[in-house]
Structure formats: structure tokens, C-alpha cells
Design a binder for these strands. Structure first.
Lengths: 233, 233
DNA sequence: AACGCTATTATGTCTAGACATAATGAGTCA
DNA sequence: TGACTCATTATGTCTAGACATAATAGCGTT
């Protein structure tokens, strides 16, 4: 006997993907409605709905009420970029993680930060500089500002053993984050810390996080040359 | 009267998000089961299921059969990175798009490419070099190799008017893609094309695509300094 | 203590039917 | 011609109930 499992939304999804890939339904074409597909596959409409909705979410098709579903003309494919803790990222590579706090100070929020996070002129922030190492080699230089108005507990934390990243994860959740990635040349300090030549190309990731519109933290993470951020669809 | 719409899975999702953010359910805690939540919100279990499943997908909670659902300890949050066409990206900024093909040649696949795409020694590829401009300023230098075995039609295409990116989108769909981002120093050629100083830090994105395990293309996209890739959660 | 079986449990998914909602197009009226 | 109204249509979402499946805990056996 064949394994006659019933058709699942996953089966339908991959069959639809296949038809699109084979250009049975070329870009721009309207695909059959949910009712029709449900009849074809012998399933309930809800099952087809889930399959097609996932395709829409991944950008392969576009749906509009009344008009129907069409194969995306310019598939704005979405890659999922997972953002783990540095420690986890290093450990996942099989390397030994080490952390060192370079400096810690409570300061008035610098102008650029006030502008970015929309902080009042009086705002106090905790400024931290840290280094994350993988197998004793510099992996990431982290420069962080924590909004003490939003996270007052941070004032009493030394961040000598545990990094601010990890501490915040457990103590200050966020509801919204904004990421930016770019290339830059290493400044004198960064170069020294990352043990590279000044002016070398470094990979910079910046992140701002909010909890319900209240700014939590801004962090700048600098990786030495050779660092690659990888993802797939 | 209040607008007594019935509670939707979105309402539930955001209420759960709120509770997690407020640490009513701290990281690591198990949240009530679907039955319980369904009873609390006065909805069917399927509705709760959809809400919680979306939270799980975004990495805020972790679900396991029998054990239940718990708030993620180290939320491996996933950012969605949308990958539009260069042209669309430039037009979205309100800039005028221009394209220029720099070179085109059918060549034997170079070693690095054979290794990356697992091509046979005899493989022929189409090598293209192009420039994309935003408001007349260099925006992206694109160097691309197309596997002629997988996309024979490309041999007859000049790519003088339409960029290979756009052409491929309409002519060679892909089912899997791999992205990598890194910082690098501009080589002499790149620097000249992007009108920057040699050795400047450039942002490099690389992409490989396959259709059902058949390699389609490898592309290297180089952006001048100042380019930022942005996303949010 | 170690192993393997079984019952239990929470999530995963499907069905059939219903109503909601956005978008479209046709028909109506000024 | 143009503005408005209304019916139509495809997708969006919910319900109630059912069965599937993975993971666990507990039990009994060796």
C-alpha cells in the first residue's frame, strides 16, 4: 500500500511553488481561486488559504480581494535574518567565547543619540564599550548606549561578567527594533581593539530598540574584515 | 455603543506581546495552553493557535508539543530582509535609475565559481559587468556569472538595455538563494567605477541562486561607502 | 539503575460552514 | 460625462469539532 496521508497545506504550497517555478503560471498570471484549488486538491478552502497565504508572505504571489491571486512580477523575496546573541553566534561556530568590558560611564546623551532616539536634552544614558572574542581573537567590538530612563536597573549593573546584550535580553524586552548594516573604515581605537590596521574595512551593524515607543538602547557592533553575515531563502 | 468587533487573532497576538513585554510572563516562563487562552479571550482554539504560532515564528516564544509554549529565553529574533530589484530600490528612494552594461563575455567557469556552484570543469558561463546609477551617481557595481547550462536563453541576450537582474527575474525563477554580506576594500577597478578612492570601504552583497538544485547564477554587488542596508522587526 | 512500553497531554492540522471586508464593475441618476 | 449606489466576487477570518503527532511521565520489567 502507498502511504496515503491526506494532503496537507505544505503539499499544496510546494506544488504551487513548483508550478510557478516551471512557469506553468508565469509572472503576472492570475492563479485559480481558492475554491477551485480546494476542489482540485480535494481539501477544504481553509487549507488552500493557508498555503497561498504563506506564499504571499514570502513574496512569491500577491493577493488582492476580489481580484484574486497573481504570481508576483518582481518577487520582492524576503530573506529571514536571524539575530542571535553574540555569545550564541560564537558558540555555534564551535569557538570559545570570551567577553571583556572596556569601559562604563553614565553620561548625558550625546547629540547624535538624542537625535536618533528622540531623547530629551536632560537624558542620562549608560555608555558601554565591550569586546567579544572567539577563540581569543577579537570578534566584535560593541559600543552601546542604554537609556537609563527606560531601564533604570542598568545603573546598578557593572556589566563586568555578563555583556549588556545578554543582560538586556533578560531584563529589558523590546517590541520594535531597527537594524542597519554598512561598511566603514576602522578608526584608530577600533583598529587597535580588533587588531587590524587602521583604515581597514570593517562590517558595522547598528541596532536601535524600543519597548512600546520608549527607546531602550542603541548599539554599534563592529566586526573585523572577513566577517560575513549569511542568510538564505 | 462601543464598536464591539469580535476579537481577532491579531488582538490576541498583541495582547500576548504586551504581557511578555511587561514581564507578566518573563523569559523562560510557560504561558497558558491554547485551551485556557481560548477560554479567557472567548474565542475558538484555532484563533489562539494562529496568534501564538505567529509569535513563535517571529521568535518571541518557543513551542513544543506536550510541554507547551514558553517565552523565549534568548529570543533569536528574525528580521525580514526584503531583496528588491536594484531599479525598484533606487526608484523607491525617488531617484532616477540608470543602467549601463560594462562588459559581456561567454567564458569557461573560473575556478572559484566552479567550486561555489559545483559546476563541471567544462561549464560555460556568461560573465557580465554592469553599473547601476541613482541620479547619475554610481549606486551599485554588479558582477555576475550566469550558468549557461541552466539558462541557455541568456546566450542570446545582450543585456544592453535591461539588466541581468531584471531579465533573470522574468526568465529564470529560482527556488533557493543564499546571501552573504560583508565589508571589503575597493579594488582599483571597483574604485574607479564607483568613483571612490582605491582602498575605500565598500559594502559587498553576494547572492547565489538555484532552481531545484541546479545553479542559476552568482552575483557580486558592490556599493560605495555610505550605503546602508536597513531593516526592522 | 537501565530499559522499554503505554497513557497522557499540548500543539499541529484539517473540515465544513459561516460571516466579514475590500475591490471591482455595472447600472442609475444628475 | 461624471458621481453615486449596489451587487458581486475573492480573499480574510472565525467557529466547533475532530483526528494526528511529538514529547513526556509513569509504570513495569529485567
Amino acid at each position: 500500500m502507498t502511504t496515503d496521508r491526506r494532503t496537507t497545506f505544505r503539499d499544496i504550497k510546494s506544488e504551487l511553488e513548483r508550478r510557478i517555478a516551471r512557469r506553468q503560471w508565469p509572472p503576472g498570471a492570475t492563479i485559480p481561486g481558492e475554491e477551485a484549488l480546494a476542489a482540485e486538491f480535494g481539501v477544504a478552502r481553509a487549507t488552500v488559504n493557508r498555503a497561498v497565504q504563506e506564499l504571499a508572505r514570502s513574496g512569491l504571489v500577491e493577493r488582492k480581494r476580489k481580484s484574486g491571486t497573481r504570481v508576483a512580477l518582481y518577487p520582492v523575496r524576503e530573506a529571514r535574518l536571524s539575530i542571535p546573541l553574540v555569545r550564541k553566534e560564537i558558540e555555534a561556530k564551535g569557538a570559545v567565547y570570551a567577553y571583556s568590558r572596556l569601559s562604563r560611564a553614565v553620561v548625558a546623551a550625546p547629540d547624535f543619540l538624542r537625535a536618533r532616539l528622540a531623547l530629551p536634552a536632560s537624558a542620562k544614558v549608560l555608555h558601554l564599550r565591550c569586546l567579544h572574542l572567539a577563540d581569543r581573537a577579537p570578534f566584535q567590538f560593541e559600543e552601546r548606549w542604554i537609556n537609563l530612563d527606560a531601564v533604570p536597573e542598568a545603573r546598578h549593573e557593572a556589566f563586568e561578567e555578563i555583556g549588556p546584550n545578554e543582560w538586556l535580553v533578560e531584563n529589558a524586552p523590546f517590541s520594535r527594533a531597527e537594524f542597519a548594516f554598512r561598511a566603514a573604515r576602522a578608526g584608530r581605537d577600533e583598529a587597535a581593539l580588533l587588531q587590524v590596521v587602521e583604515g581597514e574595512a570593517v562590517f558595522v551593524a547598528e541596532r536601535m530598540t524600543w519597548l512600546a515607543d520608549k527607546p531602550i538602547t542603541f548599539v554599534r557592533m563592529v566586526h573585523p574584515p572577513g566577517h560575513r553575515m549569511v542568510t538564505e531563502i
